[in-house]
């Protein structure tokens, strides 16, 4: 896919975002910007609207007002261009029925403008190596941890500029968490903006990621964007 990115634009900019379900307002006039190479940790308790915000950012939830731009492309006015830059990891990982893990990987490779060789190159990597023998099996039969490894691997294909990760460390073993953290750090080093949701920014895998970035001398420093349940709810 040919995309026209606004190179000066931040990977993600959310302006005056509003979302309500019935009479219940979840997000109201929310502004958020994720700069190049910046890690923003979206924190907040259950019901604070983290998943709703990530849904609006990824285009899976239609906001009632406001604007979402990915690399300067309006998500609703230019849906394909904006999504070409987006790499979204949902919290609940479904797999398509009838497709093997490898076929799902190749599907993303084609979609993100990567070659099948790029997809195959991921197989011996730290994410997929432990489940390599299962890649030819139906993806719907995978355990939650395997699903997450596969889903994260699909995010590495092509030239993604914005990683939106909903609880990326939940449900995976310690090695898997370390592998995911490593790839997030590498994406940041390439200049990707990362929006990562976590119930608690102090939880071990997130803290480890922040520590690794600090050890690398990564700039800008990670930032916590806290959402609280609205007082009027």
């Amino acid at each position: 896919m040919t995309t026209t990115r606004h190179e000066g634009a931040p990977p993600l900019r959310v302006t005056e975002l509003r979302k309500q379900y019935g009479a219940r307002v979840i997000l109201d006039a929310l502004n958020l910007e994720v700069a190049r190479a910046e890690l923003v940790i979206l924190a907040g308790p259950n019901g604070a609207g983290k998943s709703t915000l990530l849904g609006c950012v990824s285009g899976t939830v239609d906001p009632d007002g406001g604007r979402v731009e990915l690399t300067g492309q309006d998500l609703h006015a230019r849906p394909l261009e904006a999504r070409a830059a987006l790499r979204y990891l949902p919290q609940e990982l479904e797999m398509p029925r009838g497709l093997t893990g490898r076929e799902w990987l190749l599907f993303h490779a084609e979609l993100f403008g990567a070659s099948p060789a790029d997809a195959r190159a991921l197989e011996p990597g730290d994410l997929l190596a432990p489940m390599r023998a299962s890649l030819e099996l139906l993806a719907e039969t995978y355990s939650p941890g395997m699903r997450k490894r596969l889903a994260v691997a699909t995010l590495l294909l092509g030239d993604g500029r914005v990683l939106v990760l909903d609880e990326p460390f939940a449900g995976v073993d310690r090695d898997g968490q370390a592998a995911i953290a490593r790839h997030v750090a590498e994406a940041l080093a390439r200049g990707c903006g990362v929006l990562l949701s976590a119930h608690d920014p102090e939880e071990a895998p997130v803290a480890a990621l922040v520590a690794e970035l600090a050890a690398r001398g990564h700039s800008p420093s990670p930032r916590v964007f806290a959402l609280e349940p609205r007082a009027d709810q």
Binding site: M1, S58, G59, T60, P79, L80, E81, R83, A84, L86, Y88, E94, M95, P96, R97, H108, L111, F112
Partner: peptide, 13 residues
């Protein structure tokens, strides 16, 4: 299910 899986991807509407 496909709708949920593909909604965020750069595909035609």
């Amino acid at each position: 299910r496909n709708r949920r899986l593909l909604a965020h991807l750069p595909l035609p509407a």
